[in-house]
């Protein structure tokens, strides 16, 4: 066995890469996740088709109103519609499944017998959640942008400030919105990862995370609780509007980025503390 111990460090990086790839395969290879993706992608198509069919100027809000001017706004409008609930459902399901799902199926036992270091497993699961979140927001944005550009074309990109940007700059703003939402949802995913280490029921973990999202958004609406608003995980989610102003002021996103990073750090550490000390192995 001494030979294996000697080669273990040099193999570690390759093993980590393989482990991460297998985790991505686990997420992106599942049929139920593909169906979830189809639901996410249906929203921007629905928005684009309905607005095109009705022939109206879009809607009351700025994002919907701009759709007929520039198809990229279908992506932005779809992200806005899906951010409160649809995207959190997807993240809650995936992150709740991360550890509890494997424990429930009994595959976690085999994974740990391989053996896989438990710290590494937590990091790989977090990485998988991050990649999934990016894929989910990008899916909504890209499907929306393609559908919108096909039906409405791409004119100037009007900012919230009333100025008009070029198409390339508008595309850049859409990408920034995706990245910001990815970070916010990854923070939610980190919470889900922690909850997932507490139970062997992936459904329960997912519902708990979703419940937390909804409760957090409700508390955020109560002005009497304004003192604690900035500590709520969802409080800065809608700050992506700052990315649609001109001139662009990235410092306005500082609190949101900081909040998300702190949530990721705290709950990944909590998941690590739970998973490496408790006997989660069945």
């Amino acid at each position: 066995m001494s030979a294996a111990e000697v080669v273990a460090p040099t193999r570690a990086r390759g093993a980590f890469g393989r482990f991460f790839r297998s985790e991505l395969w686990l997420i992106f290879g599942r049929r139920r996740n593909w169906i979830g993706g189809l639901i996410l992608a249906a929203v921007p198509i629905l928005i684009a088709v309905v607005i095109k069919a009705s022939g109206s100027s879009g809607g009351d809000t700025f994002l919907f109103g701009q759709i007929t001017q520039n198809g990229l706004f279908v992506g932005l409008a779809a992200l806005t519609v899906e951010m409160p609930f649809f995207l959190p459902i997807a993240v809650a399901a995936i992150s709740g499944d991360a550890v509890a799902g494997e424990a429930n199926l009994g595959t976690l036992r085999y994974l740990l017998a391989t053996p896989v270091d438990r710290t590494r497993l937590v990091l790989v699961k977090l990485g998988g959640i991050g990649v999934f979140t990016l894929a989910a927001t990008a899916l909504v944005a890209v499907v929306g942008a393609v559908a919108g550009l096909a039906l409405f074309g791409g004119g100037g990109f009007v900012t919230l400030s009333g100025t008009t940007l070029g198409f390339g700059a508008g595309l850049g703003r859409l990408a920034l919105v995706c990245l910001y939402m990815t970070l916010c949802l990854t923070a939610l995913g980190a919470i889900g990862l922690f909850v997932s280490t507490l139970t062997e029921q992936p459904i329960a973990a997912g519902i708990a995370v979703l419940g937390l999202t909804v409760v957090s958004q409700i508390l955020d609406q109560l002005s009497q609780l304004s003192a604690i608003h900035r500590y709520l995980p969802t409080h800065f989610w809608y700050d992506y509007g700052e990315l649609l102003r001109d001139p662009l002021d990235l410092t306005a996103l500082g609190p949101g980025v900081l909040s998300a990073l702190v949530y990721v750090a705290v709950f990944t550490a909590a998941a690590w503390a739970r998973f490496t000390t408790a006997d989660v192995s069945s």
Partner: peptide, 11 residues
């Protein structure tokens, strides 16, 4: 340039 304004299309 922050004081320049052109009404956007559709407004």
């Amino acid at each position: 340039s922050v004081f320049a304004f052109t009404p956007p299309a559709g407004a």
